Simulated scan of single mutants.
Amino acid sequence: MLIVIPAAGASSRMRGRDKLLELVDYQPLLAQRIAVALETGADVLVTLPPDNPERRAIAEGIVDDRLDLVIVDDAAEGMAASIRAAAAFAQQQDADALMLVLADMPEIDVNDLRTMMRAFDSETVMRGMDTRERPGHPVLFPARLFPALAEVSGDQGARDVLADEKVVMIPLPDCHATTDLDTPEDWAAWRGPNSP
């Protein structure tokens, strides 16, 4: 199984800040997300934009044989560019599944990822949901969908692929599956009243 962390986005809604450099557990969010993914024992792929040396330095500073990095030259297109790159890499590695773990979702922990991995079935898409039964992430795609993922386009990610699939929802604790932080206001609310 390959876990992909798409980290090639522009953080455009952060108004000059980079959400993947925000500190979580005393480290940049990107480093924290990579560490959580590696803790599962799975192979991990991080997609990076061509023009963000800070993110690249963080990812390259994590030394682990199971970690690979891919520069996404067409990252400006949106999420689909990272998904295409991940699908191509997964096919090259002969992976049996691809788990999409968004980089801006700090509440997803190693237990959540292991829950998804235990639920894996070679034919079915699995998707995390929160305790209010709202669909979220991670999303686990079986290998049979790699060719379709390699053809996605735009900033809708894999929604078109999911539209044609029966998706099994996997319950995750609280709002782990749906808390994503895209704006300074999101970060301030998540950190609470004493946040800087």
Score class of each variant (00 low, 15 high):
Gln27Phe: 08
Leu38Glu: 02
Leu181Gly: 07
Asp109Ala: 10
Met1Leu: 13
Asp160Arg: 12
Ala76Met: 10
Asp51Lys: 11
Leu140Gly: 02
Arg114Tyr: 08
Asp130Phe: 13
Leu20Phe: 10
Leu162Arg: 01
Met116Tyr: 04
Met14Cys: 05
Ile71Phe: 10
Leu172Pro: 01
Asp180Met: 13
Gln93Tyr: 05
Val63Met: 06
Ala143Tyr: 03
Val70Asn: 09
Pro196Gly: 09
Asp182His: 14
Pro28Gln: 05
Asp121Met: 11
Glu107Ser: 09
Gly78Pro: 01
Glu123Arg: 15
Ala163Val: 01
Thr131Arg: 14
Arg114Lys: 14
Ile83Gln: 01
Trp190Thr: 03
Arg144Asp: 14
Ser122Val: 14
Ile62Gly: 06
Leu29Gln: 04
Val168Glu: 15
Met105Leu: 00
Gln27Gly: 08
Val101Gly: 00
Pro142His: 12
Arg132Cys: 10
Asp121Pro: 05
Ile83Lys: 00
Asp68Leu: 15
Leu145Tyr: 07
Asp174Tyr: 12
Pro138Gly: 10
Ser153Asn: 12
His137Lys: 11
Leu145Trp: 08
Ala57Glu: 10
Pro184His: 10
Leu98Tyr: 01
Ser82Asn: 02
Pro106Phe: 08
Glu77Thr: 02
Leu45Cys: 09
Met1Ser: 14
Asp112Glu: 02
Val24Ala: 07
Ser122Leu: 14
Phe141Thr: 07
Leu29Trp: 03
Pro53Ser: 05
Arg15Trp: 00
Asp74Ser: 12
Val125Glu: 07
Glu22Lys: 08
Gln92Glu: 13
Thr178Phe: 01
Ala87Pro: 05
Gly128Tyr: 10
His176Tyr: 08
Trp187Ala: 00
Phe89Thr: 06
Ile58Gln: 02
Ala90Ser: 13
Arg159Asn: 09
Thr178Trp: 03
Ile71Arg: 10
Cys175Lys: 15
Met79Arg: 13
Leu21Lys: 07
Val72Phe: 02
Ile3Gln: 03
Pro147Arg: 11
Ala87Asn: 09
Asp186Met: 02
Met117Leu: 15
Glu54Leu: 11
